[in-house]
Design a protein around this nucleic acid. Structure first.
Length: 284
DNA sequence: CGTTACCTGAAA
DNA sequence: TTTCAGGTAACG
């Protein structure tokens, strides 16, 4: 469920609360441990108990909790994972599956209805980083790098943008939103997008993600921030899950299709079909 | 490349 | 009862 803005909101919330804290205990539900992490519970405990958090970072949709032995606890929330900070005495979260007991009377609580989320402890993050494309909100990402991600690809632009190996952090909500704002139909072959629209898409991928962070994430269903509170970005979407409702820009009905195996929403008038017959940049 | 599986609940 | 779900790994 969470995409880059949701993960980044959680990171910003929790960083000041957990960095410098020591892990006093680890509890994981017996029916979840084998899905959550490959290590048996006792191995996870001996790895984590006594460690202090030295940093809290993010790469793509991964949360990176630095440990004082140089290792990193890598967490992915997948569809329904939640990471919230609570007083140790507070009642269990809905669908709570695990908790890290901290040394200041608080816990990091892990909830995950569907149990798709993952925890792993790695010696270094280089292997993970190598599997991920660039950060779309990194100020160092240039247009030519962005263009190279899409260049020559026949796959739908939406499928390419969802591929974390090409660019890291976009998911279903923000891809639909970025393509709408750039006025590109999601099934357009990535390599056939005009230079003008590519430039617009480069900007809109960044702006929709930054807007998502400003609004503390989109809480359509399960997402909550590090304090358990919903975000507000879902109140501001232009197309995502607005099937049959009028486009705010032109009044046409938003359409739902499937692209790259995912529910896809767009405005047929604002995001017209590209003309594949006119290959302007080639002879013909 | 597109499809399927992973798991569980809410909504249609 | 059936369908759908914000993600991704593994399949053909």
């Amino acid at each position: 469920m969470p995409e880059l803005p949701e993960v980044e909101t959680i990171r910003r919330d929790l960083e000041p609360l957990v960095v410098g804290r020591q892990i006093a205990g680890v509890e994981v539900d017996a029916g979840t441990i084998h899905l959550l992490t490959k290590a048996p519970l006792e191995a996870l405990r001996s790895t984590l108990v006594g460690r202090e958090f030295t940093s809290m970072g993010r790469r793509g949709k991964y949360i990176l909790l630095g440990l004082d032995d140089g290792r990193t606890l890598v967490i992915h929330l997948r569809m329904t994972g939640r990471l919230v900070w609570r007083r140790h005495e507070a009642p269990p979260e809905p669908f709570e599956r695990a908790r890290l007991i901290l040394d200041d009377g608080h816990d990091l609580r892990w909830s995950d209805l569907r149990k798709f989320g993952t925890w792993s402890v790695v010696d270094d993050t280089a292997g993970l980083f190598a599997r991920l494309g660039p950060e779309p909100i990194d100020a160092g990402l240039t247009f030519s790098q962005f263009r190279a991600v899409l260049a020559g690809r026949k796959a739908p632009v939406k499928a390419v943008l969802l591929d974390q190996r090409r660019i890291a952090g976009l998911g279903n909500i923000y891809v639909d939103e970025a393509l709408h704002e750039a006025r590109i139909r999601p099934d357009t072959p990535a390599g056939e997008i005009s230079l003008t629209k590519l430039k617009r898409l480069f900007e809109t991928t960044r702006t929709v993600l930054e807007r998502g962070i400003e609004n503390r994430g989109a809480s359509f269903k399960d997402y909550v921030d590090g304090q358990g509170q919903p975000g507000t970005q879902h109140l501001h979407v232009q197309v995502f899950r607005r099937t049959g409702k009028p486009c705010y820009a032109c009044g046409n009905m938003i359409v739902r299709t499937v692209v790259g195996g995912r529910a896809t929403h767009y405005c047929p008038r604002c995001q017209p079909k590209a003309h594949p017959s006119r290959k302007v940049d080639h002879a013909g």
